[in-house]
């Protein structure tokens, strides 16, 4: 009996801890979004942080990531086009390519790339700021850290994920056109017709919402995890580890929810 009691106490404590972390993350996301909606939240200092965040998250990786996305898109497009031709389904190759790449893979890969590159850095930075007492120091100087440090990162992260997704999606569409129709322009009306069929208003709104949610996740989870770090230096790597695992599950959950909403 004692074993059962201990088991439930331990499991219950773990469950409550997980529940509190997710609740705090959601509350933080709500506060960040509300702060971002207030025009008074923006001043010269916050704009500087937003610009820096976009520079480090999107601009710095743009050439390398675009090249990688182009390569991946080209390979996948060729696989789809070749396979479709083999089964006599060439008419559907372009639509399948668009759905696979632009609606599903590229937003997810962009979010994962940003998560690996920037979210881990944000998580580490905020955790170290918390451990060193830099957040308290800023607040004692009457600097609202939500406005100066956190909200600009969230805005910057969302804009970066959205922008990178848009760039790589447009590139994938161009590559898909070239793979299916070749180097000529007289098939543009056909291409436009397929695009219109795939990207109706609901789908465009869905992809926008998904990209923004990815952008929110890749910044809010690392910031919330960093803020929850106890003031002990050895907790910094543990905080980053936890943050990245939670972020991975959150991104997968968003993707699965989006797929379920669209196809089930």
């Amino acid at each position: 009996m004692a074993f059962v009691t201990h088991f439930f106490i331990r499991r219950g404590a773990a469950f409550l801890t997980t529940w509190r972390i997710w609740r705090d993350t959601l509350l933080f996301a709500g506060r960040a979004v509300l702060t971002a909606c207030a025009p008074t939240a923006y001043n010269s200092a916050t704009r500087t942080v937003v610009m820096k965040q976009i520079y480090f998250t999107a601009w710095q990786i743009l050439p390398g990531f675009t090249l990688f996305a182009a390569l991946l898109s080209y390979v996948l497009i060729q696989i789809v086009v070749t396979t479709a031709a083999k089964f006599g389904l060439s008419d559907y190759a372009l639509e399948v390519t668009m759905r696979l790449l632009v609606l599903e893979l590229l937003p997810l890969i962009t979010a994962l790339f940003v998560a690996l590159r920037s979210s881990s850095a944000i998580n580490t930075e905020i955790a170290l700021m918390k451990i060193n007492g830099e957040i308290e120091a800023l607040e004692s100087a009457c600097v609202d850290t939500m406005r100066l440090e956190f909200m600009p990162r969230v805005i910057g992260g969302m804009i970066s994920v959205l922008a990178l997704t848009a760039v790589t999606s447009v590139l994938a569409l161009v590559l898909a056109y070239l793979a299916v129709y070749g180097w000529q322009t007289w098939s543009l009306p056909d291409f436009s017709r397929v695009m219109g069929k795939v990207f109706d208003n609901a789908v465009l709104f869905g992809i926008l919402l998904k990209s923004l949610t990815f952008g929110l996740a890749v910044t809010v989870i690392p910031v919330a995890e960093g803020m929850a770090t106890p003031r002990k230096l050895f907790m910094a790597p543990i905080s980053v580890l936890r943050g990245m695992v939670r972020l991975f599950f959150a991104l997968m959950l968003i993707e699965v929810a989006s797929l379920a909403f669209k196809y089930i």
Binding site: L128, M129, N132, G133, E134, E136, A137, L138, E139, S140, A141, C142
Partner: peptide
């Protein structure tokens, strides 16, 4: 918190 006192303290580090 109201900005009446500014602390210069070992516990108030610079932004690293």
């Amino acid at each position: 918190a109201r900005g009446e006192i500014a602390l210069v303290s070992p516990e108030m580090p610079l932004r690293a």
